[in-house]
Design a protein around this nucleic acid. Structure first.
Lengths: 243, 243
DNA sequence: CAGTGGTCTAGACCACTGC
DNA sequence: CAGTGGTCTAGACCACTGT
C-alpha cells in the first residue's frame, strides 16, 4: 500500500483557481480523502513531487499539508511521507461564548445575581486546599438561564479573596485578572436536582446541558466551574470544513 | 489605545528557547494576552517590528501571528495592524470519535443492531425529498450505549439505497463511500422519551446527551443524524492550549 | 498613496528514520 | 546514509484600507 506505484497511480489533482494557492492545494488533496477515493493509510505524494506538479515552492505545499495534518485528515512522518489518516473522525470546534455576550447578542436583557460566596477548605474538585466557592445565576430578560457553580483556587488566584463578586461576574474578573494557559472542557447531560431546578425555574428532573471547565496556569489549577444551562433548549453549535 | 505609544509601551517579549522559533513567538505573544496584561483591542507590534525584535524573518513571525488569529486570540486587519481579540471567549475542540472505536479503545466489546430501515418521502429534517431512514443501536458489552437515528438524502448519496445496513454501519459506509465537505454539529440535553428510554435501557425521562450532525457535499445535503447517548454518564472532552 | 497583512519564491540546513 | 518532513531565510509583489 505504501509502494511507489500506489503513490502515483491516482487521478490527477486539480486546482480550482479560487483563492490562495495553498488553499487550492489543500482542497485538491482533501477532496479525494473525504470522497473516499484515497483510503486510510494510502500514501500522499511527497512534498517535492507536489511542488513539481503544481509548479510552486515547497513552503506553499508544506503549508497546505500542515493544515491538513492539523485537520486530522493526514498524518505525516519524516522519511516515510504523508498518509491519509487511519480514522477519519469528525471533530467539532465549539465556541463557548460568555453568557452575557450571548444574551445581549440575541437582543435579550442580561442580569446577574450572586447567590453564595464562601471560603472552603479541603480538596473537593481537584483544586488546592483553599478555595473560594461561588454560586451565581445568570438571567435573560429576568428569567434564569444559567446556573454557575465555581471554585476558585486561592493558591492560583490569591487576589480573588478580596473580590466580593456581587457586581463583577467571576468569569469577567478572572478573564481580566488571572492568567491561564490551559483549559479543559467536558459536556454532559443531567437531570436537574430539586435545588437546581428551583433556581432555574425548571421542573425537577428536567434534562440540562452541563458544561464543566477546568483552567490551569502552567500546572497550577486556577478554577473549576460547572455551568448548568436552563432546560434542553440550550444548544451549542460547531462546524467543520476541511476546505 | 491604538496610538504608537501603546504599541510599544509594554513589557519586553521573551522567548523561552524551547521548540521551534514560531512556537516560541506564539507563546511569547499569547502569554500577556491570556494573562490580561494586554487588554482586548490593544495593538500588537507590527510584523516587521517583531522581525527586528526577534531577529527573524517575516515568514516566521507571520506564521506565529496567523496561528494566534486562528486561535481567536488576536484579530488582524490590513493597514491597521493586529489587535488583541475583543472577546477572549473560550473555545473547545471536541473529537467526536466513531462509537465503535470508542468502545473498543476502552476495552469493551462492540456490537451493532439495525432496528429500522425505511424509505421516506417529503422533506422532514432539512434534507431532500427522498430519504432513507435508519434507526440503529450500538452496544457496549451487550448493553445499549448509543441510539442512532439517521436520514440519508438519496439525492446526495444515491448508492445508499442499495445498502441494507444490517451488517455495515451507516457511519462506516458513509465515511468510505460518500464525499462530504462540511459538517455542522449541535449538542443538547433531552429527557429520554418512553420509546428511546426502552431502547437504551433507561428510565423514561432520564437525561441524555444528544449530538446532531448535518453533513453536506458542497451545497448538497448528504445526511442528518441524531445520536442519543445512553444516560448522563457519557461525556465529551475537549481541551485548548494557546501554547 | 502609504503602510499593513496575505501570499509566495527559491533556495537552505537540520532532525529524524528506515534501509 | 539517503530521503523525508520541519523549519527558516531574505527577499518580493499584491490586496486592501485608512488618510
Amino acid at each position: 500500500m505504501t509502494d511507489a506505484s500506489s503513490r502515483y497511480a491516482r487521478a490527477s489533482l486539480r486546482l480550482d483557481g479560487e483563492g490562495p494557492l495553498y488553499a487550492q492545494i489543500r482542497r485538491a488533496i482533501a477532496a479525494p480523502i473525504v470522497a473516499g477515493a484515497w483510503r486510510p493509510g494510502e500514501a500522499i505524494p511527497f512534498e517535492r513531487d507536489l511542488c513539481a506538479r503544481f509548479k510552486t515552492s515547497r513552503m506553499t505545499v508544506n503549508r497546505a499539508l500542515t493544515m491538513l495534518a492539523n485537520d486530522g485528515l493526514i498524518v505525516r512522518t519524516r522519511r516515510k511521507g504523508s498518509f491519509v489518516a487511519p480514522q477519519p473522525s469528525h471533530h467539532a470546534s465549539f465556541e463557548i461564548a460568555d453568557i452575557r455576550d450571548e444574551v445581549e447578542t440575541e437582543g435579550g436583557r442580561y442580569s446577574y445575581e450572586l447567590l453564595t460566596r464562601r471560603l472552603e477548605s479541603g480538596v473537593s474538585v481537584g483544586l488546592g486546599d483553599r478555595t473560594l466557592y461561588l454560586v451565581c445565576r445568570h438571567l435573560r430578560d429576568g428569567a434564569p438561564t444559567l446556573l454557575e457553580e465555581r471554585w476558585i483556587d486561592l493558591a492560583g488566584a490569591p487576589a480573588a479573596v478580596d473580590q466580593n463578586f456581587a457586581d463583577e461576574r467571576p468569569n469577567a474578573w478572572l478573564l481580566h485578572n488571572v492568567p491561564w494557559t490551559r483549559a479543559e472542557h467536558q459536556m454532559s447531560a443531567v437531570n436537574a436536582a430539586a435545588a437546581v431546578a428551583r433556581l432555574l425555574d425548571l421542573e425537577s428532573g428536567a434534562a440540562c446541558l452541563v458544561l464543566e471547565r477546568r483552567t490551569w496556569r502552567d500546572r497550577t489549577p486556577v478554577t473549576y466551574v460547572k455551568l448548568t444551562y436552563a432546560g434542553p433548549a440550550h444548544k451549542l453549535v460547531g462546524t467543520f470544513e476541511p476546505a
